[in-house]
Nucleic acid binder design. Structure first.
Length: 641
DNA sequence: GGCAGGCGCGCC
DNA sequence: AAAGGGCGCGCCTGCC
């Protein structure tokens, strides 16, 4: 394996015929260079700045980058300003194929080779007892430390944890050779993942008959979209690109007007306290109006104590949540005081000055960690309050000078997704409307708000109240859609795995109690979740089964919606590049773009264009229409919703 | 003193 | 009979 410079390797890749759509795996060795591998060979590149290497290659042949995880490999490169158009993120694809959160190289390798997942949780070694055990496992193998695969087929632990890529581990040349070898293994995993994805049945071709969420225990019928790439493979590319997007969101942050934010905070929680005494004083002042009703000794922050205090005033509630208290506003003035206090308390504790100081940089950007997919349905997640900013603080999210914010949100995404994934012809017809609740209301013979509640209740598993009655009509009018949800519910109750429309595995089996034997050591012999304290084992089992049913019912819709959303978002990301715009926030069905003012209208057009293109393949043949509500604004609060 | 879990709430 | 899903975060309690 030759040691080359950045320019030489770009040239070598080019000369070897590595083209635009070819996968090139990369493993970065801090301070030394990078190991690269394509199906046409492997290279170890010496360069102090791996970002320069990747930029050279990206420019030369714009490959499909392959890495063990974007979090590990791409994030530092993204932070250094490298733009990478496309990638295959082995960790992200592994989570699609196998569900759950675990995505370390050892688990990926084992899955690719059909082996049981290795022991441990995949967290990086920290010198604990398990590491000693693993080192012993590796050593007992008696293999060459330069050979990454053990006799039992598993990845060596000291390779899997990638600690050897850090500075000061062996001589640079040796580390670069190992990096190139590790990159070749990445290509082996990639190929295995793509094979597995192609074996999933493509739901778009499952026309006719009742669609059900795919059960991986049922053999795939092998049919795939005629002439096209299977949907699950497209999901893999989109989920991978979403990880790149997550890295960029983490780097760029959300533009925030600090002054406006401070004004909002001051209104709710008072001026910034100068010391602990002042903070305690504002806290007492905030509590006072509520304590005037309850008496001084009550701790408002202790739910049990608060509930007891309310009871002494004749207000008997099972818990003190605001939804529970809202209807009781007229019963006693303490209720209103308490609800107002809660709002202020939220700002003061979670979105107050400490939040501002911790997460808003000197450049006025709100930054937090981003993940491309959560462990349940595969939504993106964000920290630092980026996904749960109180609506009142949206006024502080503002375009920077010379820029506009383009806000684009998918209208009624979940019911439209339900129509698409279930293949319900009547619901699909309704989804041809700009406002699909109108035709649903007409069909059910109720008003629009009731229709909306009925549809959402069906997807969330709520069957009580008004929604329950409407749900029975839903069953009549849209039997396939409801059958799809019921099938997911039944699978969830039974603890069976499911797959979303795009191919993500949804695990519904009750999780083993904490501290149990490592995965792969055999069944736990019990399907009870958690401990049974109140109500007895039988009740708790029924309850948790029902909860799994509701989870599964929702996960196949929420998860599929997340896949469609990300597929759209990553296309927006690519098309935004020539406009010098960036995505600054992803919010499940909503995008905020930060765009130079004179390109805002172009950005609006591209959101519609990319959505049409994405829906055309994603929902091919379903007749379901997906619509985006798009507006150009200066502040997030200017948006209609 | 640190950690896990419950509660409550923000957003979707 | 009744039954709403997901996430992150801060506060509280109870446990070790």
């Amino acid at each position: 394996m030759p040691l080359l410079t950045a320019g030489e390797v770009a040239h070598a890749l080019h000369a070897a015929g590595v083209g635009r759509r070819d996968p090139v795996a990369v493993v970065v060795v801090a301070g030394a260079g990078a190991g690269l591998a394509s199906e046409r060979g492997g290279w170890a590149v010496r360069a102090c700045q791996p970002s320069a290497v990747l930029t050279a290659i990206e420019t030369a042949c714009a490959p499909r980058w392959v890495w063990w995880s974007a979090r590990g490999t791409a994030a530092p490169l993204v932070a250094a300003g490298v733009y990478m158009a496309a990638c295959w993120d082995l960790a992200a694809v592994h989570r699609v194929l196998h569900g759950g959160r675990r995505d370390d190289p050892g688990a990926l390798w084992a899955a690719a080779r059909g082996l049981p997942p290795p022991a441990g949780d995949g967290k990086a070694a920290r010198g604990g007892q398990l590491d000693l055990l693993a080192a012993a496992e590796d050593a007992a193998d008696g293999e060459d430390p330069d050979e990454p695969v053990r006799g039992d087929g598993q990845l060596r632990r000291d390779w899997a944890d990638e600690t050897w890529t850090r500075p000061g581990r062996g001589d640079p040349a040796g580390r670069l050779r190992r990096a190139a070898r590790f990159a070749q293994l990445a290509l082996v995993v990639r190929a295995a993942q793509e094979r597995a994805l192609r074996q999933l049945d493509d739901p778009r071709t499952r026309a006719g008959g009742t669609r059900t969420a795919g059960n991986p225990q049922t053999p795939a019928d092998g049919t795939q979209a005629a002439g096209g790439t299977p949907l699950a493979v497209l999901t893999a590319w989109a989920e991978s690109a979403a990880e790149l997007l997550a890295c960029e969101l983490e780097r760029d942050g959300l533009p925030l007007d600090r002054t406006a934010a401070q004004q909002m905070i001051a209104r709710a929680a008072g001026l910034r306290p100068r010391d602990d005494a002042e903070e305690a004083a504002t806290r007492r002042a905030r509590d006072a109006p509520v304590l005037a009703h309850l008496g001084g000794g009550v701790d408002l922050r202790n739910p049990a104590e608060l509930r007891a205090a309310l009871l002494s005033l004749g207000i008997d509630v099972p818990d003190t949540r605001s939804a529970r208290l809202k209807p009781l506003r007229d019963v006693h003035p303490v209720v209103s005081a308490l609800l107002t206090w809660r709002k202020a308390e939220r700002i003061a504790t979670t979105y107050g000055y400490r939040w501002l100081d911790s997460y808003v940089g000197p450049d006025g950007r709100l930054r937090g960690g981003w993940r491309g997919s959560d462990g349940a349905g595969g939504r993106m997640t964000a920290q630092a309050g980026l996904h749960n900013l109180p609506a009142g603080l949206r006024v502080a999210v503002a375009a920077e000078p010379g820029h506009r914010i383009v806000r684009a949100d998918l209208g009624q995404i979940e019911p439209r997704v339900l129509a698409a994934v279930s293949g319900d012809p009547a619901l699909a017809r309704a989804a041809g409307d700009e406002d699909m609740y109108a035709p649903v209301a007409a069909r059910l013979g109720c008003d629009r708000p009731t229709a909306k509640v009925a549809v959402l209740a069906a997807m969330y598993g709520q069957t009580s109240g008004v929604a329950g009655a409407a749900l029975r009509q839903m069953r009549q009018a849209y039997p396939r859609a409801i059958a799809y949800l019921d099938a997911a519910d039944a699978a969830g109750r039974a603890g069976l795995d499911l797959r979303t429309f795009g191919g993500r595995l949804i695990r519904t089996a009750p999780s083993a109690p904490a501290g149990s034997a490592p995965a792969g050591s055999g069944p736990t012999g019990s399907d009870r979740a958690g401990s049974d304290r109140a109500g007895g084992p039988q009740v708790d089992t029924d309850r948790s089964a029902a909860a799994r049913g509701r989870f599964a019912r929702n996960a196949v819709i929420q998860g599929a919606a997340a896949e469609l959303f990300k597929a759209w978002a990553v296309t927006v990301r690519q098309e935004l590049l020539p406009l010098s715009g960036t995505i600054v926030l992803c919010l499940h069905d909503e995008l905020l773009l930060h765009v130079p003012a004179d390109r805002a209208e172009d950005a609006v057009l591209l959101t519609h264009r990319t959505l049409a293109a994405t829906a055309a393949y994603w929902a091919a043949g379903s007749r379901v229409r997906f619509v985006a509500d798009v507006s150009v604004i200066d502040r997030w609060s200017d948006a209609k919703n």
